[in-house]
Design a protein around this nucleic acid. Structure first.
Lengths: 338, 338
DNA sequence: CATTAGCACTCTTCTCTCCAGTCTGCTAAT
DNA sequence: ATTAGCAGACTGGAGAGAAGAGTGCTAATG
């Protein structure tokens, strides 16, 4: 059932207000502010039907109204279509993002920090990642006679390293020779394509190739690249986290490396923004929280995600366009690094 | 003034007990437990002199005793000399540490996780780092015509990368040639030694060399290598953090990248364990906490640190030998990676 | 018929008090 | 030197009461 226009206005006021000060909104407050020319009594009637429709609830009998998950979702859908950052805000974020150079990881971390400060919640950004990693360059560097460092440069400018041990002495010359051979044969290939090659002449070469495939495979298995999380204390300063069991729940969640992987985000691959509010979260620890995330990067090639985690009572009107904007900035700038 | 033997016993009981259950210790509790054959009244007399000496205090007039910073320091000094992990504990930690392979960062992170679970507090471990970084290997990998990825392998198996942009087209062949020349001339050198070289023939080579020096320099500037922090929620489950302003204070501290750098640890470079309790911390946010850290690695070559952060009321008897033991294990195993 | 004023009722929150429990500090006795 | 005993101090929780905020309902109003 659709809401009457005035109900929509009242609902919006309740949500805005509650997002602002985290206090249940009284009918008098609604009537007073915002120049609505109706009395508290009328508002109470409307609020009663909003409650029947499941958009608001009361924490106790004689308390003001607070929005339900349904209301937040309704609100977020509206906001996602309409809200944009002002030019000044866009410029601010853009300028802040330019203040580092060089390393993509540092830069994405900066992006997360900026986002978290801007929306006062926790920000997550992942390194961009290919669906199937391809080898760009291989180095073998002798550590000592019986061990070497494998350095793998992937497309997306990502670097993986691993130590490999040998049962016999191996010189740097041997290693260089093997690296050259593998580079010549495997550059641009995925782990599957490398397996089909039959380049292994020596046992050593075979061993190294196996490690390379192993590294590529383990990289492929991950849904996202390395995760940067910033602004924990931004989020935890929110009144929702005044009792510390809520804090511990969040900390335990993000202590787990894979928490982001287990969240299902159907819109993400199509490039849309994904807004998961409250109970809709499959992850139990997230059921009092909201997650706003979006993909960035070059679809089909390297993609990462950027997003915000916070209480359901987050400022969607600011958060959603911020994520959208930063996602597009990252998408454009990422080509520099790849 | 030195304490009488019985005072020492009582003091130890108070500290042990308070570390165990975080509740002020009453004279009756002391008398009852531990088979002391003296009455609460006698104990109260002794406690009174302990208070005069500054070893204990009372949170309010008729409350039990809690240890002061001075008491903790006294206690920690004793423990640091005597305590050792049991063989079973050593074996446990050792086995747990073997469960990963390949990448040093992952391994150190695992070490931090194990330590934090073991002592129920926050653990910090840094990547080992040379006082002066030396170049081990340089790679230049073309990203596109106008940009390349500089990959620097340092001793300590540490890898640094940076994107460099050019004003004209540069092919992979050019890059490889430059990389070979720089490798030939600079391997094993520090940033200072490289500057004195006069190998820059082309503008391009000059530019790359400058970047290399820059990367080495910025690496030199840092006091410690990359920091791994684990077990935040272990620490925050302690009763000391039941009010969340204490939590936010800690979070704000470790959000700052450089917090560890600003702590002065005179014992660290001589290889000893450093125990900084309460007010002795220069960092204000740490003044209610204790930090137990120690160097590991190969002095003069690559060294890192490993330590534990927790409330002053931490289990020094377990924490100190754990840090000691893990530091020595890391020192031995680190050679595999370097 | 939508709107509103008025009022009874509910629930929270703050403060105050009281009481039981805990523990110390002191004194006098051993 | 040690201890028993007791007064006094402080905490923490329970309970009561009052103030305040806000709703739901009803009846009146334009």
């Amino acid at each position: 059932m659709s809401l009457a226009p005035r109900q929509k206005v009242i609902l919006k006021i309740i949500i805005d207000r509650y997002i602002f000060d985290a206090v249940p909104v009284a009918s008098k407050t609604i009537a007073d502010s915002y120049g609505l020319k109706i009395s508290p009594a009328t508002i109470r009637n409307e609020v009663a039907s909003l409650e029947v429709e499941g958009y608001i609830m009361h924490p106790h009998h004689s308390a003001g109204s607070i929005p339900t998950d349904k209301a937040y979702r309704h609100y977020a859908r509206l906001v996602a279509e309409k809200s944009q950052l002002s030019l000044a805000e866009q410029l601010l974020l853009y300028q802040l993002l330019r203040s580092t150079k060089g390393e993509i990881g540092q830069w994405l971390k900066l992006a997360a920090t900026i986002l978290s400060r801007f929306v006062h919640n926790l920000a997550v950004v992942t390194l961009p990642k290919m669906a199937q990693c391809r080898l760009k360059h291989l180095d073998l560097i002798s550590l000592h006679d019986f061990a070497a460092l494998i350095v793998l440069v992937l497309y997306e400018a990502n670097i993986k390293k691993r130590v490999i041990s040998f049962h016999r002495r191996v010189s740097q010359e041997d290693l260089t020779r093997i690296a050259n051979r593998i580079n010549a044969a495997c550059i641009g290939k995925t782990s599957i394509e490398i397996t089909t090659e039959e380049l292994e002449n020596s046992l050593l070469e075979k061993e190294v190739t196996k490690s390379v495939i192993d590294i590529l495979d383990s990289e492929n298995k991950a849904k996202y690249g390395r995760l940067y999380i910033e602004g924990l204390c931004q989020m935890l300063s929110q009144p929702e986290f005044s009792n510390n069991s809520a804090i511990v729940r969040v900390l335990e969640l993000i202590d787990r490396e894979d928490w982001l992987q287990s969240i299902s985000c159907p819109n993400l691959n199509s490039g849309g923004i994904e807004i998961i509010i409250g109970q809709k979260n499959t992850e139990e620890a997230l059921q009092d929280l909201s997650l706003v995330i979006r993909q960035y990067g070059i679809p089909g090639s390297a993609t990462g995600i950027i997003g915000v985690l916070g209480p359901k009572r987050m400022d969607y009107g600011k958060t959603i366009p911020s994520v959208n904007y930063l996602s597009s900035v990252l998408s454009k700038s990422i080509t520099k690094y790849i």
